[in-house]
Amino acid sequence: MSELEIKSLEERFNQRIANDEKIEPKDWMPEKYRKTHIRQISQHAHSEIVGMLPEGNWITRCPTLRRKVALLAKVQDEGGHGLYLYSAAETLGISREEMFDQLHTGEAKYSSIFNYPTLTWADIGTIGWLVDGAAIMNQVALINTSYGPYGRAMIRICKEESFHQRQGYEIIMTLMNGTDEQKAMAQDSLNRFWWPALMMFGPRDADSPNSEQSMLWKLKRKTNDELRQAFVDQTVPQAELIGLTIPDPQLKWNEERKHYDFGDLDWEEFWQVVHGHGPCNKQRIDARKKAWNEGAWVRDAAMAYAEKSSKREFKQAV
């Protein structure tokens, strides 16, 4: 194809997106659109899968059976969400194995929040409430994204996600109705997770070079700073309702803006964790690699069994 032809195809493509038409897997798309989507969707998938690790840590230590069934169901959902997203990325021509490889070698990123440890039971509550809350905020905005399979995965995920946030908030609420020690545990957890949760929305708009292109492709419907602000506005009253204090001395309602003003994030910490130097980066990837490598014989055995049985069926048919 000549450059001119590609240019006119691209113009038509951008027009389709501007008209709110969806792009489906076999449609022509610019190479950059394909690559950007593979990157974003696979990293979103990795976040779901790695996100199972900090919570899985608490499944055997839940305080009651009710909490345990809920946490098991939540972690199982995260696995399913990973699957929907990996499948969506596969429609763009990358294989599951390539994506796992990128995760295991550190080439692909995942949400930095999962590089923080879950030290107490309260952290399971905080993760559901804040981390899933922030994820919902991001994901609802993505339901109308231009790439069909990604949008469809988002619809499914958002439907399932709201139970996650409610179960988290309920855990924290229960602790806040408990003893002084339980209240302190909930507050300590919020203190540790508040800033990392705000970091989930990514760098400031001014430092987010790809944002403009992503907005054009509707891969982003709201900017990082808009989503972060919406999250703060939504979460502060939820904290106040149960007697928690947001660990930010600069947090204040701004009557003029009709939004909360809040302090600046520790961007140095943000980039440290993104670049692999967070408290648990190594532990998370090691756990993933171990699961993948130790499961290899199971995958091989299942395939060998399937091949053997299909031969047997064939013989019977003859």
Partner: peptide, 29 residues
């Protein structure tokens, strides 16, 4: 090692309605 093939999944949500494409997954058989 051979990778598990990809399958398309169709679900009938209740009797009287058609099966609709729900998504895909990998499985050995």
């Amino acid at each position: 090692m051979k990778n598990w093939p990809l399958w398309e999944v169709f679900i009938r949500s209740k009797n009287g309605l058609e099966h609709r494409h729900a998504g895909s997954l990998h499985a050995s058989d």
